[in-house]
């Protein structure tokens, strides 16, 4: 037996596919998969939310409120009641027993919780300058109730969380999540715009004009100047865009714009209390 030196061909042990091409195929496949899952979940939660009785909703709302109760706020409730009064007869929102709670926090936001609870953060209240603005914010949240957005969001969050836990356990999949949350941001922004429109119509029914409907966003815009790019993946649309859409809608409906009412004394007292603390 004699040895004949020969070189082994190392290339047989390596696949010839280009890594970038493979990444494109696999990444594309994953995106498609995620989009399908997302679409399925949206339809599923939409269906569940549509069939969920108000009683069950109230129960869910109570469970959430136990985490962060806040304090019921009679002055805000008074304004909300005045808005609800203006709802047309037979509106599905009449089934709700609405309440408003105030939570002390610097967050400039308000949240619609299942069961008819609107949570207003004190950070938002401090920004408000007129009765009409305050009504617009509350009407916007009522719009979320009318579209059942509060339940859709909650349901999708739960299902998405459960699905990702089942599939990936603890190992988080950053690409997938970023993609899905990106999709969700687009969806959420369109929900916000729909709620804006709904609020605008209610504001008109309440006051007979839509003065003050965009003041709040204008102030927000002045406060922090952010590019539109920063709003690409945000849950809310850019304030400028919201103002434009509201103004266009008001013009189309021929809603007049009149002078705004200053804040009532009870709200001013509330604000003073908040500032003192």
């Amino acid at each position: 037996m004699k040895f004949v030196p020969k070189e082994a061909d190392g290339a047989v042990n390596i696949s010839k596919t280009h890594p970038l091409a493979e990444m494109a195929w696999l990444g594309g496949g994953l995106f498609l998969l995620a989009a399908l899952v997302y679409l399925g979940l949206t339809l599923l939660t939409g269906w569940i939310v549509h069939h969920l009785p108000v009683d069950a909703e109230v129960w869910i709302g109570k469970e959430i409120l136990q985490q962060e109760p806040g304090i019921p706020s009679p002055p805000l409730k008074k304004r909300l009641d005045a808005l609800v009064e203006c709802l047309p007869q037979g509106s599905p929102l009449k089934r709700y027993d609405f309440s408003v709670r105030l939570i002390e926090s610097d967050t400039v936001n308000a949240v619609a919780l299942p069961g008819g609870t609107i949570v207003v953060f004190s950070g938002l209240l401090k920004e408000v300058a007129s009765e009409n603005e305050l009504s617009m914010i509350l009407a916007h949240e009522l719009g979320h109730f009318a579209h059942r957005d509060h339940l859709k969001r909650l349901g999708k969050g739960i299902i998405l969380g459960a699905a990702s836990w089942l599939l990936f356990k603890n190992s988080s999949q950053p690409f997938l999540f970023t993609f899905v949350s990106g999709l969700d941001a687009r969806y959420s922004q369109s929900q916000e715009e729909d709620a804006d429109m709904w609020g605008l119509h209610l504001l008109y029914r309440r006051y007979g004009h839509v003065g003050g409907s965009v003041d709040f966003f204008a102030r927000l815009l002045k406060k922090k100047r952010q590019g539109r790019l920063a709003y690409l993946f945000a849950s809310h649309p850019h304030p400028q865009k919201r103002i434009e859409r509201l103004v266009a809608a008001a013009r189309e409906q021929k809603y007049p714009v009149k002078a705004v009412e200053p804040l009532g004394s009870d709200i001013q007292n509330l604000l003073e209390d908040l500032n003192r603390e």
Partner: peptide
């Protein structure tokens, strides 16, 4: 990092994990 991401993706769809072949080779 790139090949690891590729392998994670490949694990979802199955098949030949080409990115690790060159590593072991």
């Amino acid at each position: 990092y790139f090949k690891r991401a590729l392998a994670i993706l490949r694990n979802i769809f199955g098949g030949r994990v080409a990115s690790y072949e060159s590593l072991v080779d």
